[in-house]
Structures are given as C-alpha cells and as structure tokens.
Amino acid sequence: MGAGAVQGRLMRGSFNAGAATLALIGALALGVLSSGGGAASASGGGASAASAPPFEILGWEAAQPLPVGLHGHGVATFGRWMFVAGGSAETCPPPPGSLSFICRDIWVTDLDGVATGDALDWELFEDAVPLLPSGRNGAVKAGIIGDWLFLYVERTGEAQLYRYPITDNGADSPTLEAPVAVDGPAGIHQAGEFLAVGNYLYSFGGFSQSATEFTEVDPTNGAVLGWGNTGTFVTTKSGGSASDGEHIYLAGGNTGGSGAAPLTAVLRAEIMSGASSGRG
C-alpha cells in the first residue's frame, strides 16, 4: 500500500459508498459498481504489480502571474497554447446579476514561455464567457476537440455548454470567434467532471447528480452529435478526473452533497471503442 493511511482495496461488487448503481455504456462503457452494501473489502497486501518506478518533478519554474481568478477557472491547451477561462478574482468583479465571482474573460498564452521563464504574453478575449442568468458558485470547465473550444459554464442550478471556433494563427496566438450555445448534457453537473477525450466530451457527477453523459463531437465542424446517458453514477462532486485515452480515472470527490462521505479511492472505467453515443 502507499504511504499514509492504509486502506483496503475496493473490490468489485463491494463498493461501500452508499451510492447508486452505475452502469455506463456507449462510448464510455464502464463496468458496474454494485451497491450491495457490503463494507469495503480490506486486503492486507498491496497490488501485485511491480513497485512504482522512480519519478520526480524536476523542479518548478518560478510562478508567473495568472490573469484570472483562481477558483473555478478552466484551462485547455491547443498545441503549445493555453486557454484560461473564468475564475473568481477581485480584479474582475461580476456585474450585478451576472455569473457570480467568475471572470468572463478568456486568456491565451504561449506555454513555451513558462518553460523558458520568459514573461508570459497574455492575449485577452474580453467578456468571452457568456453570462448565466442566475445563481452563484460559478465555474468554468474547458475542453478542446479539433479546432473547437468547449466551455461548460455552470452555476448553482444551471449550466450551459458553449462552442468557440479557434483560428490557428501558427506562430501567433490563436484567436477565438464568438461562441454559440450548443446542446449540453441533460443534467447539471455542477462541481462534476468534464473531460474531452478524443472526439468525445464526458460530463458526469456533481451536486446531486449521478448521471454520466457523453457525446461525440464532429471535429470538422464542432457539431455536438447528441448526448447519451450511460446510466447512474456515484455523485462524486469535487473530485478529480483524467484520461489516458483508454480509461477514465476518477479520484476523490465526495459521494453526495456537502458533508457526504469522502471518496478516497481511485476508480476507472474503460472507454470502449465502437459504441455509440445517444445521437439519433
């Protein structure tokens, strides 16, 4: 087991998160986590695989200022360019009635400057994040498929998916065209997970939200080809997720609203090729 608190591995069919059953199908075809109610199965030994290979973060570069607020900001990369959207900050107080605490700007910079230590040259797309009409606790999540930037803008009780055409300017910063609202997932995945993997967008978990939804995107025109619902899922709000193209990994979060049981395991689901999304 890893250092720190030793916990039993969560075994198939004995997941004790008090969560609903998950059955994910389609492009994101996941296995089934049974809520059979058994306690997490403790296992005395660690994984049988070889020990972790050496790894180290070889020194952080000096921090460079980020032009947006930190809480709730979204980031996506387009080659060596990085888009940063939203985030709460005192420097961009929200207009009355607007998306609370979320800057509406999108910035782009050249990541090469981070590696070299050169001052970052930020390009601003002012007021690029559309307003949502009500609520608070906003956040922006970003993903890129082809030459299209998708922003999942959320706040309490509502969410909207936007699509931005990206113009690749080669050595110069890419530029964004005005966004259009496109069909988003049926559920509101506030504080949930939003991933762009290959030509698919995935949205799952969040406050009081157990659905796992996905859609294929046509990379040639950015068209959202229809969301499918793979079933229910543990309501892992505020976790972290990533994909290696073959699986989606989820770590942490908690299994419900505030004060619900923390999820300290790592879950993964295989991405099945050849399955269809909900379009049509």
């Binding site: 720190g4 916990q7 591995r9 660690g46 505020s238 972290g240 770590a251 923390p262 993964r268 689901a269």
Partner: peptide, 14 residues
C-alpha cells in the same frame, strides 16, 4: 468500473 488503491492520505475534495 473498478476501484483500486485508495489515495494515500485520503484527500478527496478538489
């Protein structure tokens, strides 16, 4: 979906 190792120090929020 399968579950594997728990996070070592039990971090879970964000």
């Amino acid at each position: 979906m399968t579950a594997s190792e728990s996070l070592a120090i039990g971090r879970s929020l964000d």
